[in-house]
Design a protein around this nucleic acid. Structure first.
Lengths: 354, 354
DNA sequence: AGAGAAGCAGTAATCGGTTACTACGTTGAT
DNA sequence: ATCAACGTAGTAACCGATTACTGCTTCTCT
């Protein structure tokens, strides 16, 4: 209500620019868009007037007239996680490269909030909605998300899922994934190649796709060598605190492992703490491998060996595909692009003793 | 270009809803806005039609017609910094509480980009533009930013500066700060209270307000005890790498200090590395104190004593004040709200030996 | 020199909401 | 019965950009 407009100066419009430079509004618009032949003379005059009047285009007017919003939205659980921050960074960069603004929204891991945001974003006319992170699959969720994907498409927008499986429904959407199962498989194999046989997997939330995938990779590597995984997968959360308590409790029951494959670097950090608290050393007594290769990994003591996920690249790829798709030149939209992960070797893994 | 509209179904507009429910577009708009008396009957019919047609309002049309966007923008250097991420988190939470979306933009520390973004954001109809982080003051920048602040106000939007001094110009804008000088003063005093006398300050960028403030706090604490600060302030960047090399070089020239006050936790992490590389121990040989109390601090070895900055609270306060201001009930807009910082004691500071 | 093409600029319709203004029907007071 | 007041609904003029369509030059080719 306190919003008063049309005061004294009001707003500088394309018409003011046209008047000042002595050309028509159409010409001004064309100079701005640059998609129509315009004489050098007119161009110069318009640019001068724009500069002098300090004119900025009204995004709403442009959006309304059919140019799209030129924004891209990204939905993450929380921005304070280094992994999501890095993905967001990638999205932001690529969006900027494509002349788009980047809208970052947080869902706090709540599927309902996620749906509400997608719904809202669609109204805003975002060019693309990128959802990052694993999800607990549920029938109802799938159905509603498919409806939204459909309506996003209806308004010329694109839904991109990052690090999460395709929707079941036959609705156009893009998927950019990174190796979860493969990464955990590689991490476990790296540990096993050092001679470990008693390995546990710690962290992650049961039922969330990312967790399930990593656990699967762990199991596969173990089973290929005929090692047991029964009772060796400790799920709970992806927070550092869980890593600490889970390992503490396990150690209290007796040390029946020589290596830990952590769900992520936070868990690994917690595990490190618990191991040290128990008077054991890393990697001499217990080896630990993390996941994500976040900022944390290189700063822990010992520096953490971790699976590097190309987080920024993930964000960039998501945007790139979304924009390509908007322009209609994605070969196969239903194809899942999967980015590779690799083990970054530091100091937290060694051969087991004896 | 590939954006084809007016296809088959086209877009469901308020007119479709009006037609379906047998009322006028004005009535539909009023039901949606809820700011005009409408009969229960009409309301019910409109709502039913909206539901049935799966109608969503076009944000551009609404924005163009002068209703504001209900979004809040935050400008930070980069989202991957834990500090900025935490502020952004706070902004996002409070914005959501106020029914606003949160637009996060990155400036990469470039004042020109910052200005360009503010300029652009104003026309998006953002309710508030929050700029976080210190800045190199420059006359030209001040003038342009003041102009933008003015034009933001003209369209009913608010400019909020976070952790940066007020604009010189007499232009309405809000400032939420946190103690920089006081924090560094407290950190230094904490170190001094342990008996240290040879202390150096490492990190930060010359000329940026945040750095200058922290250095001032350091100097004040030292001078109050009659200790020299000449040649004891090492500026360069706020990255970990700088912390490492700066301390390495200093140590190479001889160990003339027993404690380090770091510009932030990243610098502290680098310093820790350099100290250890030189065969010295923390805190036995050298004490280190950080700033920001980021995630990093508690995970370093030894756990880093650091100055806690209420980053999330900073974001929340910024949004709260902005929305209050829009509603016209901020008592004194020119008042700078300053949030307190405090030293979080961990294991990286000890008495100097002998 | 005249016809046709090409290059550039202008007019005005349009996007989808909001809202000032007008109009209508009902109620209540005189 | 008449008129004022009130509550509700409708008409149409905006908001500021885009762009189809039209028209005027200028240039080229015969």
């Amino acid at each position: 209500m306190s919003r008063q407009r049309k005061q004294a100066g009001s707003r500088t419009t394309i018409r003011d620019v046209a008047a000042k430079s002595g050309v028509s509004v159409a010409t001004v618009s064309r100079v701005l868009a640059g998609n129509y032949p315009t004489s050098e003379d007119a161009k110069k005059k318009v640019l001068a007037a724009i500069d002098e009047l300090n004119y900025v285009m009204n995004a709403h007017a442009r959006g309304l007239a059919g140019q799209g919003t030129r924004t891209i939205a990204i939905l993450v659980e929380q921005v304070t996680s280094p992994f999501y921050a890095a993905v967001a960074q990638g999205v932001e960069e690529q969006a900027a490269a494509g002349g788009r603004l980047c809208l970052i929204c947080t869902t706090h891991g709540d599927p309902a909030q996620e749906l509400a945001l997608v719904n809202m974003l669609r109204d805003q006319g975002t060019d693309a909605v990128i959802i990052v992170g694993g999800i607990t699959p549920s029938r109802e969720y799938e159905i509603r998300m498919a409806r939204y994907a459909e309506s996003l498409n209806a308004v010329g927008s694109v839904l991109v899922l990052c690090g999460r499986p395709r929707l079941d429904a036959d609705v156009p959407h893009l998927v950019v994934a990174y190796e979860n199962e493969e990464g955990a498989y590689a991490a476990t194999n790296y540990i096993l190649s050092k001679g470990h046989e008693d390995v546990i997997f710690v962290g992650g939330v049961e039922g969330i796709s990312t967790t399930d995938d990593r656990v699967r990779g762990f199991r596969r590597a173990m089973q290929e060598r005929g090692l047991p995984t029964e009772g060796r997968v400790l799920l709970g959360s992806h927070r550092e605190a869980f890593g600490r308590t889970a390992v503490q409790e396990r150690l209290a029951r007796g040390r029946d492992f020589t290596a830990i494959v952590a769900y992520n670097d936070h868990i690994a950090a917690g595990a490190l703490l618990a191991v040290r608290q128990a008077g054991l050393r890393v990697p001499e007594d217990v080896s630990v491998i993390g996941y994500d290769d976040s900022l944390l990994a290189s700063n822990l003591t010992p520096a953490l060996t971790s699976v590097a996920v190309p987080a920024q690249e993930l964000g960039r790829t998501a945007v790139r595909r979304a924009l390509e798709h908007q322009d209609g030149d994605v070969r196969d939209p239903s194809q899942v692009v999967t980015l590779a992960t690799h083990v970054v070797v530091r100091d937290s893994v060694a051969r087991p003793r004896a």
